[in-house]
Amino acid sequence: MTVPVLSAPLSGLVSGTAYAKINLALHLRRRRDDGYHELETLFAFVDAGDAITIAPADAFELIETGEFAAAMGPVADNLVTRAAVAACGTADGALPPLRIHVDKRLPVAAGLGGGSADAGAVLRLLGVGADRAQAIGEALGADVPACVVSQPMVGRGTGTHLEPLADHDLLGAGCLLVNPRVPLSTGPVFKAWDQIDHGPLPQGSARDILLNGRNDMEPPAIQLCPAIADVLAALRATAPVCARMSGSGATCFAIYDTPDAMAQAAAQIAAAHPGWWQMAGRLR
């Protein structure tokens, strides 16, 4: 039996965006005894991503459409399903009477927090209070708490300890996402890291951290997926503010100061590499 503990009952259809997550910088500090990694990162979000719609229903139904729907995995083990169950507080873990439609526009295993972004959007759309949503997010995965907020945050620990960013001087900056259409799982990239601590996350504004930071997962990811180096080279040839891999890859991003510069870069890369996936937006 469903025992809803939402902030407000869901009386009608609600919809929103599961914003693409990028890591403007990601510094790995050490591997912990529990097998997880201590890291420091600056999460940022693009104003584009998967589209989520939720409506009351007689029984739970997860509808998956879009280019990457087939990669979402079994319904019972999907982060969307788990977020909905946790949000509705079913005492026995029963599926809540909701119809959730995910238009899967973000590639899976791509460093964009796709599943985490979907889970965060579900928690927001179901009106779960901030503190409870963060607790649920931590139980679901390391990126989910940041994706619940979907605003720039400094993440520490495994990424779940969040601090607000004082100066978001990249708000509205153009962001071009490019993926060579090669999935890359996080585990092997962490395993291939050389375990050398190259220092902490820089301090300052978003731009300071972007320009003075790095992604320590980029070198091992390139070893496992050499196409990432090709994507980075193509992006850097468009003269962005900065181009870097996001998360554990294989998606890379480039930041531009003007919409025209981003549009020109998107057209240039699409013409040269028509098989690559790309998405353009602005930083939230």
Rank of each mutant, 00 (worst) to 15 (best):
A229M: 13
C225E: 07
T186S: 07
L210I: 07
I222T: 02
I196S: 13
M279H: 09
A267P: 00
T258D: 07
M217Y: 09
D260L: 13
P188N: 08
A233F: 01
V189T: 05
L224V: 11
E218V: 03
I222S: 04
Q223M: 07
A227W: 12
Q195L: 15
T251R: 01
C242I: 04
W193H: 13
W277R: 01
H273Y: 15
R236I: 02
Q278C: 11
T258S: 04
T238R: 08
D208W: 02
Y256A: 07
R236G: 06
A206E: 09
L210A: 07
P259I: 04
F253A: 13
I228E: 00
A221Y: 02
P220H: 07
C225I: 13
C225F: 02
A237W: 05
T258N: 02
A221K: 06
V241C: 12
F190R: 10
A250D: 12
L224Q: 09
A192Q: 14
P240E: 15
D208A: 05
A239M: 07
A265G: 04
F253E: 06
N212T: 06
A261V: 11
D230W: 14
A250P: 08
A270P: 00
K191V: 08
D230I: 12
W193E: 08
T258I: 10
A206I: 02
A270E: 00
F253V: 12
H273N: 12
P259C: 09
L235R: 05
A243H: 05
D208G: 11
L232A: 02
T238G: 00
D216A: 06
S246R: 01
S248V: 14
S248D: 11
A233G: 14
D194S: 07
A270G: 03
W193L: 10
W276T: 10
Q278E: 07
I228N: 09
W277T: 01
I255D: 02
A234R: 03
C225K: 10
A233E: 11
D230A: 08
P226T: 06
R207K: 10
N212P: 00
F190T: 15
A266E: 02
A237P: 01
A271E: 15
S246V: 08
I228C: 07
